[in-house]
Structures are given as structure tokens and as C-alpha cells.
């Protein structure tokens, strides 16, 4: 791949004797939707944490748009153009939906916006994520689907070039899943590269142009969904896991 937006080089992450990532190297193409899959405990969220600076890698490099961002503070990485969502959604519960989005607008952008631009951008994001109607509601009053949308809206507020989505589809009904997939495609259509962790195989395989497979902290495969689903190593890693088999059968 020439000129990937994001590159991981031999990333290692140790936790007091446990090696959660073992020399993982990968690339994410500009403008793509790339998926990361793997059994539980494979190191997927750890990889996200290494990229965003939550838990910097013990060894290895993270290169974002030709720039080494390994070990930078998370708020700086945010301003450089990477944002993420979390598995356990954590908005600012006591603040309104609007203020939740506003934080990212105020503090997370590469270039500061004028007041007018801020207001316009905020309403644009709220509209895009269908949150306009509940903009004044406090985050703690939202239902799960609304919370997920808010999580995404907050990720968008910082004006990212790359967005890391950590299991945004988990826990949704089939209709909601389709809706969320549409939203993700729409985000990508705006030129934002998406890297997503997902267990719902149908969604990952349906959205991604490229899939990375992790197992026991190591990358065991990378390729387009068709290649990956026929890879023997991948199959044996997932042996006995129903949803993978279902998703693999195209």
C-alpha cells in the first residue's frame, strides 16, 4: 500500500508480564473503511489504545499521515486528527447533548473555529447524527441508540481525518444495525477514514474494504473480506464460533 493514512510498525504492548500486542504491523488506506476482527482478548481495543495514546505502546511506532505520533498525549493526537468511540459509551452525563458535542468543537480541532463556524458545525453534526431534536436533553436521559449516536457525534466534533469505532454496532437491533451501517458509510463518504472493531461479522464484512485479523495479540491475516474469510488461520482461530461461520458464508 502506498502512502497509507495510518501505519503501525511492530507494535508491542506489555501489561505487567502479559504481552497484549506482539509486534503487530498494519496499514490503513486513506479514505477506506478498514475492519479489525478477532476473538475476545485478541488485543483489538489495546491496539486502539496504542494508536490514540490512551496506553502508548511499549515498543514500536505509530505513524499517522507520515508523522510519528507514538507516545504523544491523547489530546494532542486528537488535534492531529484522530478520534475514537468507546465500547462502553461514556458521554458527559451531566451535560446536554449539545454541550457534549461542543467540547470537541472547542478543544479538539486542529484549527480554532470562529463562534459562527462553531455554531454552524455543531448543528450540522447534530443533524447528521439525528440528534437535533434532543439537543437539549441531558446525556444521562438518552436511550442506548441515542447514546451511540452521541458518541459518534462527539467523535466527529473534533474534525477528524481518521475515526476509530470500537464496537458501535454491539447491542443494536437488526434495523438499528442497518441504520448505523448507513451512517458509517455516510461518514466515510465525507472523506473520513474509518477503522472499526466489530464482532457483528455481517456488518464488518459488509462495510470494510480491508480487514485485519488479530489473535492472541498477533496479526494473523490482512486482506479484503473474501480473502480473510477463507484464510485457514483465521478459520481455525474462530473454530466453533457461530457468528463467524455465519458471516464467513457469503
Amino acid at each position: 500500500m502506498s502512502d497509507p493514512l495510518l501505519q503501525g510498525r511492530a507494535l508491542v504492548r506489555d501489561f505487567a508480564g502479559l504481552r497484549a500486542l506482539n509486534a503487530v504491523s498494519f496499514e490503513v488506506a486513506r479514505g477506506s473503511i478498514t475492519g479489525i476482527i478477532g476473538p475476545n482478548g485478541a488485543g483489538k481495543t489495546t491496539l486502539f489504545n496504542a494508536i490514540t495514546g490512551d496506553y502508548p505502546p511499549t515498543a514500536g511506532r505509530v505513524i499517522f499521515d507520515r508523522r510519528d505520533i507514538t507516545g504523544l498525549a491523547p489530546n494532542r493526537i486528537c488535534r492531529l486528527g484522530i478520534s475514537r468511540t468507546y465500547q462502553s459509551v461514556r458521554p458527559f452525563l451531566g451535560l446536554s447533548v449539545m454541550n457534549n458535542v461542543r467540547i470537541g468543537l472547542l478543544y479538539g480541532r486542529r484549527e480554532a473555529l470562529t463562534r459562527g463556524e462553531q455554531e454552524r458545525e455543531m448543528f450540522a453534526i447534530l443533524d447528521f447524527m439525528q440528534l437535533r431534536a434532543i439537543a437539549d436533553k441531558r446525556a444521562e436521559e438518552l436511550i442506548p441508540l441515542e447514546r451511540k449516536r452521541l458518541e459518534l457525534a462527539r467523535a466527529l466534533a473534533t474534525g477528524p481525518r481518521l475515526v476509530l469505532l470500537d464496537e458501535v454496532i454491539a447491542g443494536l437491533t437488526p434495523t438499528e444495525i442497518l441504520s448505523m451501517m448507513e451512517t458509517i458509510r455516510a461518514i466515510n463518504a465525507r472523506g473520513i477514514t474509518v477503522l472499526l472493531i466489530e464482532h457483528v461479522m455481517k456488518a464488518v464484512m459488509g462495510l470494510s474494504s480491508e480487514v485485519i485479523v488479530l489473535h492472541h495479540g498477533e496479526k494473523i491475516a490482512q486482506g479484503d473480506p473474501a480473502q480473510v474469510s477463507q484464510d485457514p488461520a483465521v478459520i481455525s482461530a474462530y473454530l466453533g464460533q457461530a457468528d463467524l461461520s455465519a458471516g464467513l458464508r457469503r
Binding site: R90, L93, G94, N99, L106
Partner: peptide, 16 residues
Amino acid sequence: QAVTQNRRGAVLNGVN
């Protein structure tokens, strides 16, 4: 307020 309610979230939104 944001830092009080969700420190990690605030950091990831760019707050120092």
C-alpha cells in the same frame, strides 16, 4: 464539568 464527569472522554476530545 467535562473533566469532572469523564476525564478520559475530555482528553480524547482535546481538552488539556
